[in-house]
């Protein structure tokens, strides 16, 4: 591991004041500490924000919304009964991610900042434009089974690995931040960036800007009876998604009055297509409708290598998550959250 300075500021403003180019904020450490060990990240200064006061609360807002502090642990959020009842697919996504040990350490803010699992990014000996601008992309033409099929370009074909971010995208979460220039809100759709010309910039955060909280509106909770997160992975637990989908519906008189669909594992950000959602409005829930919506959602997909199979799978996970959402949120968290298999298959 490289050598670095370590400090633990007492307040958010102290933390931001301490930031300088090359510094990194440390929350739960589950991602940063690992990347520092491999050498993929080498911050000169680590600012430990894990104990900043006031950022570890789940609050109900006067307007009926919910505000989650950036330092709320994944396990705490998934296990909060009121939160899980209002946002079951967020709880399911959290519970399906990583392991109990990691969920006890990982924070909400850290999850939003999670770096890609692209092995070329992880390996300091491979070319990677994300690690270092202008370095090239080792993944293009390499092993690309897990890479993007949407929103990629020749500069970068990496995907965002987060489970949590997929339902947050579907539910139009808002990210509250504070930086050297003060506080601001960032719409979730704008938070993660596609590679474009600056693949090294993965989020909309400005240098030194710190996530304070994530807000969800009361409307985001309105689909609580019909929402699911579904995830396809190569082993039953403790694995990143090959593809995943978060689906939330509001139904009235047998018709869909609101549809939300976000797809994970396919791009550098959770993928949402307004046209796919619009297509379902006013329609009765139906597998054929869901199939068509999923097809529209994946319309622009192209393989970035030998990963064309993901397009089919993403379409199917999307359609299936919509069908499961229409069938109703399970009354309790499934034994294997977000699994594509029935519970009896594993126990």
């Amino acid at each position: 591991m490289n050598l670095f300075d370590y400090l633990r500021p007492a307040s958010v403003s102290d933390a931001i004041a301490a930031w300088q180019p090359g510094a990194a904020y440390l929350g739960g450490g589950t991602n940063l500490v690992d990347l520092m060990k491999t050498g993929a990240l080498q911050p000169g200064k680590v600012i430990d924000i894990a104990r900043l006061p006031g950022l570890d609360r789940i609050e109900s807002l006067p307007d009926g919304g919910t505000r989650i502090g950036a330092l709320v642990k994944n396990s705490v959020l998934a296990g909060d009964p009121d939160f899980a009842a209002a946002f079951p697919m967020i709880a399911e996504a959290l519970a399906s991610g990583a392991s109990g040990q990691l969920r006890n350490a990982a924070t909400l803010g850290g999850n939003l900042m999670q770096r890609t699992r692209c092995v070329y990014f992880q390996d300091p000996h491979s070319a990677c434009n994300r690690r270092e601008s202008g370095n090239g992309c080792g993944a293009l033409g390499g092993d690309t089974q897990n890479h993007a099929v949407l929103g990629w370009n020749d500069a970068c074909i990496a995907t965002n690995p987060s489970d949590l971010c997929v339902p947050l995208a579907a539910l139009d979460a808002v990210v509250e931040t504070q930086g050297p220039n003060g506080r601001r809100d960032i719409a979730f759709a704008d938070f993660h960036r596609l590679p474009g010309d600056t693949p090294e910039r993965e989020t909309a955060l400005e240098p030194g800007e710190l996530i304070l909280a994530v807000r969800l509106s009361s409307n985001a909770a309105a689909s609580y009876q019909n929402s699911r997160y579904l995830k396809l992975r190569e082993r039953t637990s403790f694995a990143f998604a090959l593809v995943s989908a978060a689906a939330a519906l509001q139904l009235k008189d047998g018709r869909i009055t609101e549809a939300r669909l976000a797809i994970g594992g396919v791009a550098a950000k959770p993928w949402r297509v307004p046209a796919a959602e619009a297509l379902m409005l006013g329609q009765p829930p139906d597998t054929d409708l869901f199939r068509r919506a999923a097809a529209v959602a994946l319309e622009d997909a192209t393989p970035s290598g030998n990963n064309g199979y993901k397009i089919d799978l993403a379409r199917r996970i999307a359609a299936r998550s919509l069908a499961l959402a229409a069938a109703g949120t399970p009354t309790r968290m499934p034994a294997l959250p977000a699994s594509v298999f029935g519970e009896s298959a594993h126990v």
Partner: peptide
């Protein structure tokens, strides 16, 4: 339960 390998001792 947490992984001690991912927790800086100062935390």
């Amino acid at each position: 339960p947490v992984c001690a390998c991912l927790m800086p001792v100062q935390q």
